[in-house]
Design a protein around this nucleic acid. Structure first.
Lengths: 255, 255
DNA sequence: GCCCCGGACCAGTATAGACAAGCTGGGCAG
DNA sequence: CTGCCCAGCTTGTCTATACTGGTCCGGGGC
């Protein structure tokens, strides 16, 4: 059986990609070897990863080195190992760390999937009473507004509805959101000082439901985020995630 | 065919404390050896931990085994290692984590409302395959189970479904939950070391919906929590909150 | 007094060899 | 055909040994 069809596998000598930094430790090179194949699509979720012995042969490393690489990837949740059967690419349940203000594009790419964004609305508007209160500006003050849908592959993973204070982060609407996410733009223009989050569950209104391509009655996770820069509110964001395809992960421990 | 030929490797002298389970892997025994000394106060925060070579001598293990134990404890944040200097017990700084492991009774009372609890089910059961996996115990091992509803005034605010490992937190079922919440009991009996959370949104099944007195089709927030004590899983908890009446707050301060 | 160098000790990494235990599939006996 | 066992794969673990580079300290040369 062609266990491992070995599309490349130059067998003996320089089996490790020369693009890798030789300075890195061997076990890290092996980890990258696996991660690159996952990111590149050569290895997909559920598929079998070369066994320790196979790696020993194809990469010319000792079994302990291959073992450490696979074991650490398993500890990270990238791989799943079953004694006597093999090592497999983990089914990726979507994860995010609520404590960190993360970039959803990075998150998606880190899982080896294609990131796409659809710009639904870009606008400048004047603050309602409620918005003004949350931004601590005067009612009627100008605010930038964006409504985007972020896709993982072809599936919407987040609807991002965002208000930005142009006094704190000027030029928001001139940003090319297909190249720079709101998050990336904001941390560049208005260094993040602090962020507040609230998380709740709801069955979304039709507008959000359509953008997330949800069935009627499906739940979604709403993360409301308020970010501060230079002591002022830089932006308010409502992040909607499909309840069935998204979960927040958090480890609670002094690291 | 030496399947059951030798139940354990009798090759090595019994240098490790006999209180430790002999079935456990050596590197786990070394980890427990360190953790016990930290828990017992023999090793305090900032103090130096025996070096790999010292452990090799005193515990009669190979250096690779000691290395793995120390490396994993460092990865868990228990130890801090500095090449060329040594290994030290990490300073346990107080963490204001967004998803702090909080006591719901305190939370409700802090808002000036009356806290009440209804015990739905208390039971001892044997671990299913899936539970055993998440607890890292053998399938069939005894687990304690509780299902409670926490009320704010007359309104249910949380359904708490919890599994507890009696090996780590004995006497759970004998606790009077009308006076001591599971959380209070557990932090007293099994000092919290670490907690993992995942948060998701869903439309609950009928059982949960009834306990929370929700309308059909209402969303709820599910917080799945896994707590660790002494390096072992102490408990699994599924915390269901009504989406309309509950939100999770999280503040994020970059260091 | 200051600087440099070497030795001691440390973690980090790599290798080879070994045994244990779990799973799967094929072959064999009934 | 059914049931069982076993070969052969897998991961999991442990040991012994070796070399590297970082840190610290003390001693000797300047």
């Amino acid at each position: 059986m062609p266990r491992f069809a070995s599309p490349d596998a130059g067998t003996h000598p320089e089996a490790l990609p020369v693009t890798l930094q030789q300075a890195a430790a061997r076990y890290l090179q092996v980890k990258h070897f696996i991660l690159e194949r996952i990111a590149g699509g050569t290895l997909r979720a559920g598929e079998r990863v070369p066994s320790e012995n196979e790696l020993t042969r194809t990469l010319t490393v000792s079994r302990m080195t291959a073992n450490r690489a696979l074991r650490e990837l398993a500890a990270d949740g990238v791989l799943v190992r079953v004694a006597g059967v093999g090592t497999f690419v983990a089914e990726q349940r979507v994860h995010a760390h609520p404590l960190e203000v993360r970039n959803i594009a990075d998150e998606i790419r880190a899982r080896g999937h294609e990131y796409r964004v659809k710009v639904v609305t870009l606008d400048s508007l004047s603050a309602t009473r409620e918005l003004a209160e949350r931004f601590a500006v005067k009612p009627g003050a100008a605010l930038d507004y964006s409504l985007l849908t972020h896709f993982e592959g072809g599936t919407p993973l987040q609807v991002e509805e965002r208000y930005v204070n142009p006094q704190v982060a000027p030029g928001y609407l001139r940003n090319d959101f297909t190249r720079t996410t709101p998050h990336e733009f904001l941390i560049r223009v208005a260094p993040l000082q602090r962020a507040e989050h609230t998380v709740r569950a709801l069955v979304p209104e039709r507008r959000i439901r359509r953008l997330l391509k949800l069935e009627a009655g499906e739940a979604c996770l709403l993360i409301k985020r308020r970010t501060f820069s230079q002591g002022r509110v830089a932006s308010l964001a409502d992040l909607y995630h499909p309840g069935s395809r998204y979960e927040l992960a958090a480890n609670c421990q002094p690291r």
